[in-house]
């Protein structure tokens, strides 16, 4: 798999299709694992989608006392393994991005797995498949790099030069699973 989940917050129209679609994924048990939130509804209708970054060295896995969070060979960070998870919620506090969800009833953590049954066959995850605004995309690594370059160039045309330390503010969010 050489594909990336690519997020562009400004494109989001807040329809929450991605959340409805997330419930449809295999093994998601009709519970969504992604987020769509308003930046500030009082001010505007800007919303943003939020998914797991699939970190290469995930903090959630590092803080898990049961060693329950596993990474697949493709690099997808899976939900805590149900048999190992002791339900301590360390992962939800360790994750710098506030992604893992916890089910108190069933005593287990669950998180975005990029629709593993789809993405392992190179089929786009449900959220990226249905997102009507392309705020969530499942694209090639090269395409992602191209989009990022374009974005940086656009800012340069605007006369805004990224400085060391804030250059990440000039490129859109991207994350996902790829092999270099």
């Amino acid at each position: 798999m050489n594909k990336i989940m690519y997020l562009e917050f400004e494109r989001c129209i807040g329809c929450r299709s991605c959340q409805a679609a997330c419930r449809e994924c295999g093994d998601h048990d009709a519970k969504e694992r992604n987020y769509v939130e308003y930046v500030d509804f009082m001010e505007s209708r800007q919303t943003y989608p939020m998914l797991c970054m699939q970190c290469k060295d995930p903090a959630c896995a590092r803080v898990c006392p049961a060693n329950a969070i596993q990474i697949t060979e493709e690099g997808v960070v899976l939900s805590a393994m149900e048999e190992k998870c002791i339900g301590c919620r360390n992962c939800t506090f360790g994750c710098p991005f506030g992604i893992p969800k916890f089910d108190f009833e069933e005593n287990k953590m669950y998180k975005c797995d990029m629709c593993y049954d789809r993405s392992k066959h190179d089929i786009a995850p449900m959220c990226a498949s249905v997102c009507p605004s392309d705020a969530i995309r499942f694209i090639d690594y090269d395409e992602m790099m191209q989009l990022r370059r374009k974005r940086t160039q656009m800012n340069l045309i605007e006369g805004k030069k990224p400085q060391e330390g804030n250059k990440w503010e000039y490129v859109p969010e991207f994350f996902g699973v790829y092999s270099d």
Binding site: F9, E10, Y35, E37, V39, D40, E43, S44, Q46, Y48, M50, T92, C95, P96, F97, G98, I99, P100, E169, P172, E173
Partner: peptide, 28 residues
């Protein structure tokens, strides 16, 4: 967790710190 998600997005949209006139409405 919700605030952490927001922190990330605000940083990304460069809306982290106060922008412009603090007495004006927040400009998203």
């Amino acid at each position: 967790p919700a605030c952490r998600r927001r922190i990330r997005v605000m940083k990304q949209l460069n809306l982290g710190g106060p922008q412009g006139n603090p007495f004006q409405p927040i400009e998203t």
